[in-house]
Design a protein around this nucleic acid. Structure first.
Length: 263
DNA sequence: CGGCATGTTGCGCA
DNA sequence: TTGCGCAACATGCC
């Protein structure tokens, strides 16, 4: 589930599993996911490097390596990481496998991605996709004035599409935008350039609420049995706030659920 | 079988 | 130059 909260959860996991670890060996055959595009070269270049730190910006992760290069990772729609003993059977849809040594012990981290829309860029230069990212709501907070200025240029976009624009706010995806607008009581179809400052404050608060709630859900792990969504994927069911039937609309090609009564 | 899915990029056009 | 609208990508699941 890779939106900001899922990627932040992944960053914490990778920090525990990989920070300070030496990469003994990398195995991949997937020329679609890795850059450089030759999987053997990609694997060879990573061997013997040590992972110094892992940061996140929006939906992107960045591993800093001890030779000055960085590994930028995007999970696409279906990417995630699995940690296990080296001898354990490989997980289904494993695309890249990292064999590590950490504190004298051998470990394995697998990148799993059935749909193969994820990316791993090994480079010394900052990729343009990373440079183009807007402020990260969790790491940077939300500046209402700056956000309003950016939204003002989007004359035809809905507020929901604009929130999902990674150059406006980095990390907001379909789930987070849908949930945050419901929490804020703002109609997702409203024009981005016409949203009031009062509404923007409510949206900023709704984003924080959604992100924190999702992070807590992920941290609960197996203990959390039910998903943390209030409206996402719940069209036709009653609004948890007012009981009205939740509606569904497509904005920018993405399914959006909202309450026609209180949003 | 048809429809839907947590995301991004690239293209033509205004 | 910037914004817009859409198809494409690859695969699983219901």
């Amino acid at each position: 589930m890779p939106e900001l909260p899922d990627v932040e959860h992944t960053r914490k996991n990778l920090s525990r599993w990989m920070r300070g670890a030496r990469i003994e060996h990398v195995a991949t055959e997937d020329a679609r996911i890795v850059r450089p595009k030759k999987p053997r070269a990609f694997a060879r270049e990573l061997a013997d490097l040590t992972v110094e730190s892992i940061e996140r910006r929006g939906k992107w992760l960045c591993l800093s390596l001890d030779d000055g290069r960085r590994l930028y990772i995007h999970l696409g729609m279906t990417g995630w990481f699995v940690h296990d003993r080296p001898a354990a059977p490989s997980p289904a849809y494993e695309r890249v496998r990292f064999d590590l040594t950490r504190k004298g012990k051998s470990e394995r981290v697998s990148y799993v991605d059935p749909r193969r829309w994820g990316r791993m860029l090994l480079t010394r230069e900052e990729p343009s996709v990373w440079a183009a990212l807007g402020p990260d709501p969790l790491a940077d907070g939300i500046d209402i004035g700056a956000l309003a200025a950016r939204l003002a240029r989007r004359k035809k976009r809905s507020i929901k599409e604009a929130l999902m624009d990674q150059s406006i706010l980095a990390g907001v995806g379909n789930i987070v935008a849908t949930e945050a607008l419901w929490n804020a009581g703002v109609d997702p179809r409203a024009k981005a350039s016409a949203v009031s400052t009062t509404q923007l404050r409510a949206i900023a608060s709704g984003l924080r609420w959604t992100i924190e709630r999702h992070l807590a859900y992920l941290a609960a792990g197996e203990a959390a049995k039910t998903d943390p969504f209030c409206v996402y994927g719940r069209a036709g069911k009653p609004c948890p706030r007012c009981g009205h039937r939740l509606a569904r609309v497509v904005l920018g090609g993405r399914t959006t659920t909202y309450c026609p009564h209180c949003q």
